Amino acid sequence: MPPRTLLLLAFLSLPILLLTSHAQKPHNTSLCTTSSCGTTTITYPFRLRSDPPDCGFPDPFFALECHTNSPIITIGSQHYNVQAITYGNYSIRLTDPGITPGNYSTCPTYPSLDYGNSSQYMTSVYIYNIYFAFITCSRPVNNPAYVANPSCGNATAFPNASQVYGYVAENVNAYNNLDKSCVVDKEVHASSATPFEVRTYPYSTIHDFLSHGFEFSWYQVYCGDCNPANGRCSVENGKVRCRHYCFEHTPLSERSFRCKLEYYYPYIFLIILPAIGKIQFNPDEFVNDKSTNLLNFGLLPRWNLTAEMLVWSFICCCRSAVQKKKAARRCFHGGRRR
């Protein structure tokens, strides 16, 4: 293959390198042993508090305790039961310690999840979350959005009342239709991989939702310096990957070397194109014998493309790929703002 052709192909491959992502490196735990608590396997980024600190992610959130064969996670001053840790999708499922599966007289312990003390490395797994409000009233309330729950009424909410009445409702319904004789005592939520039906659930179903628990994802522990470097970290095909984007609103002086190179790419192209000259593109230079036979039979077109045609076709493909990614960036500086 002629050297000038190789030079052109190398230059054309530059945008592809700018658009690619890379997998984040896993933590080296070769010197650590896998722990367990009951039926739950505990390994990086989690560890038992009795394990060496290097065997878990350096955040107190990931240090678990084991009580009567049940793993416990601490969020601020709250302690939740760990129902499952799924390492394949980087998730952990938690339940309130006051909820006992099948025992519908049990009530949540905590008034709400202490998000202020949760780890920055934890994010919601599912987009489908349902929030329930436990309500205490000083008198009976006839509201179709309220589900009677006599076991979880909070007598301290109305100390002068001879009797209190407990209800459960979805958060939105609770606040939009809150009776003057009622207060919201607790707010809890559950997660699901499928959408929740928009209807009033019986309390047994609500209790089953809470018994299943709510889930967090901890894939952020593998993101490293991806986010600080204007990257977007996500899980793709079971692996944590980092994609870097160049944003138009970022001043050129603050952009990374890769983004500066993307910015100057068309200008570099205009400079080196005269040096490369017009190169006739012959498909026979890039195919093997079997493909060449297809060319001879007329099954593949035999085109002669100049360097300019090849470059501008490639730029159009590049711009289309970027638009599909819906990223706030340009494939080619000087193009119209998306």
Rank of each mutant, 00 (worst) to 15 (best):
P274W: 05
I42M: 09
G334I: 05
A155I: 05
L294E: 12
S320Q: 14
R232S: 11
C37H: 00
S211F: 12
C55N: 06
R255W: 01
T200S: 04
F46S: 15
L48D: 12
A84I: 08
Y131H: 06
P60S: 14
P274Y: 07
Y104I: 15
A229T: 15
I272Q: 00
P60M: 00
K186Q: 12
A84P: 02
N288I: 04
C182G: 02
V311D: 00
F286N: 10
L178C: 10
K186V: 08
C316Y: 09
N129Y: 00
P52V: 04
K180S: 15
D208T: 13
K326H: 01
K180H: 12
D208M: 03
S192D: 04
G76I: 14
P101V: 04
V125P: 03
N227F: 03
D208P: 07
R319V: 13
T29R: 03
S112H: 10
C37M: 11
R243Q: 08
I135R: 01
C223F: 10
F247N: 14
I73D: 02
E170K: 09
I16F: 07
I206E: 00
L113T: 13
C107S: 02
V311C: 11
P283N: 06
A63V: 10
P26R: 08
V147K: 01
L12A: 10
Q220R: 09
V221S: 01
Y201L: 09
